[in-house]
Design a protein around this nucleic acid. Structure first.
Length: 494
RNA sequence: GGCCCCAUCGUCUAGCCUGGCCCAGGACAUGGCCCUCUCAAGGCCAAGACACGGGUUCAAAUCCCGUUGGGGCUACCA
């Protein structure tokens, strides 16, 4: 039997980190068994769904290099892959359930139901639907219809059913007493299917064999199992994973960090780092090892090894891991590092649109100079914005500390002259200029280095001074040195 | 309220099924030192956890029961 897994996003927003995480495990499972991964769009909530989000979600998956063999965009033998296009299927299954007597029409209004619920609550009884529409006569039904009531369809749970067992691949055997379940609605009065129903019909029709989904669905599982049984179908294997939490230990939300995959892309995270990190939020393939390529993850994946607890999304660790990937990329594929920095550069207004060849080459050199300081694409802005500006903005603290002594003017001026007089400015040349100047003045090299760095970059932290001078070039260096001198005169006052 | 799931360093987790090798291992973060023009990276070191209470056992992080704390379901949401 071919292993088939799926992920079923609702196109009501951008791909969420939690969703991508869940999808990734379904994908890993399929890939590790040479199976198929299918994308099914759950767009029954028409008012909130949009095609634009659907496209965006696909795009984010592609960026992550999570691919699918079947889906709305690529088709497949089990289509269509949008729930709104599968209405006939749900109708057929509903009819089947009705004729088998496993489901019945319920004419209760939402108001009546609400009243029942409130009554139960007042009497401190657990609420369950009374089942009063179970045995309506033809006359009663006709009367309701004459009143204009539009019925819903409810699944009939067995009155004295036996314990429902869910064999969860990660949690083990979980038992449910049907006593606590009630006849639940599977088709709305407007004829549209509800989640628990559409889901079962789709998973079966699409021959899904394994479902890895959120823990919130565990309690739904027994209800679904009853439906599988009523239809004579075999349910898929299931595994329920806990949800990712934010640092506040609450469900991941905007408050504690970005929640959309898109945000991470924009900030310059690498998809392979994100995926590696995703894996570690549920399992460690080997002891004492954190870095795994996607193929390695595929080779080692076992659902049973997935963790049961809710992981907290640790930005610090993701950032560290991204840095690890950036460093190897710096050696093997610097072009990609350039690519990853582009969005942040644009957002900071340091780059307009697509870079020209010259711009790309320049960014490439900036990246070389920045080196392992680049953990995330956006770091290029934090550490190297001055490479892309003509005037330097001094950080307050930096200027106060290194550009406040009047004596420094002389040093910076002297350095400016020597730079101007140099034939060319390469790192070694810059270094000897600074060091000989220091020697002549009886200064420590650092006494020149620090003020110069602030003069050229505005910051106290950043790339090596000599490399940075070489990249900036004679022109910029002399100009910035002069500007710093002027700044000191202006602020120290004279 | 009822039902279900979960619980090892601040965080991700290894170990738990098949008790002893665990006075609990690794990683991120934190602190210190080294390297060094700053920052980063790197190296070394440190601090840091079996939620609690009962059992079972010669022996429990590991098995059982309970408590507490989180989370979920209990919708004509997904």
């Amino acid at each position: 039997m071919t292993i088939r897994t799926r992920y079923a996003p609702s196109p009501t927003g951008y791909l969420h980190i939690g969703g991508a995480w869940m999808a990734f495990f379904n994908w890993l499972f399929a890939r590790s068994h040479a199976g198929a991964f299918v994308l099914r769009v759950e767009d029954t909530d028409r008012s909130r769904s949009s095609e634009e989000y659907e496209r965006a979600i696909f795009e984010d998956f592609r960026w992550l290099s999570i691919d699918w063999e079947e889906g709305p965009d690529v088709g497949g033998d089990y289509g269509p892959y949008r729930q709104t296009e599968r209405m006939a299927l749900y109708r057929a299954s509903a009819d089947e359930l009705l004729t088998r007597g496993a489901a019945y029409r319920c004419f209760c209004t939402p108001q009546e139901l609400e009243a029942e619920r409130i009554r139960a609550q007042a009497e401190k009884r657990p609420y369950r639907y009374s089942g009063r529409c179970r045995h309506l006569t033809a006359d009663q039904r006709a009367a309701f219809e004459r009143e204009g009531r539009r019925p819903t369809i409810r699944l009939r749970l067995h009155d004295h059913g036996e314990t429902i067992v869910v064999n969860d691949l990660v949690r083990g055997r979980v038992e449910f007493d049907p006593e606590h379940l009630d006849d639940y609605i599977i088709v709305r009065s407007d004829g549209s299917p509800l989640y628990n129903f559409a889901n079962v019909v789709d998973d079966h029709a699409m021959a899904i064999t394994h479902v890895i989904r959120g823990i919130e669905h565990l309690s739904n599982t027994p209800k679904q199992w009853v439906m599988y049984r009523a239809l004579g179908w075999t349910p898929p294997e299931v595994a329920h994973l806990s949800n990712i939490l934010g640092t506040d230990k609450k469900k991941l939300s905007k408050r504690t960090g970005d929640t959309a995959v898109r945000d991470y892309r924009r900030e310059g995270f690498l998809p392979e780092a994100l995926l590696n990190f995703f894996a570690l939020m549920a399992w460690y393939p080997e002891e004492n090892r954190e870095i795994y390529s996607v193929p390695e993850l595929v080779a080692r994946f076992r659902v049973e090894d997935l963790g049961k607890a809710s992981p907290v999304f640790d930005m610090d660790k993701l950032t560290w891991m991204n840095g690890v990937y950036m460093r190897t990329l710096l050696e093997r594929d610097p072009g990609r590092v350039v690519e990853v920095c582009l969005p942040a550069l644009r957002e900071a207004g340091l780059l307009d649109g697509a870079p020209t060849e010259a711009q790309r080459a320049y960014i490439r050199r900036v990246i070389d100079v920045l080196g392992e300081r680049l953990k995330v694409g956006r770091d290029i802005v934090a550490y190297g914005d001055f490479f892309f500006k003509d005037t330097v903005e001094y950080e307050l603290e930096a200027a106060r500390r290194y550009l406040s002594e009047p004596g420094i003017v002389e040093v910076l001026s002297a350095l400016r002259e020597r730079v101007a007089g140099a034939a060319t400015l390469d790192p070694a040349g810059a270094e000897s200029l600074v060091r000989t100047l220091a020697e002549e003045r009886g200064l420590q090299a650092r006494e020149i280095v620090h003020p110069t760095r602030v003069a050229l970059t505005g910051k106290t932290a950043g790339p090596g001074l000599f490399e940075l001078m070489a990249l900036l070039g004679k022109d910029q260096v002399t100009r910035r040195l002069a500007a710093a001198v002027e700044y000191i005169h202006r602020t120290v006052g004279s």
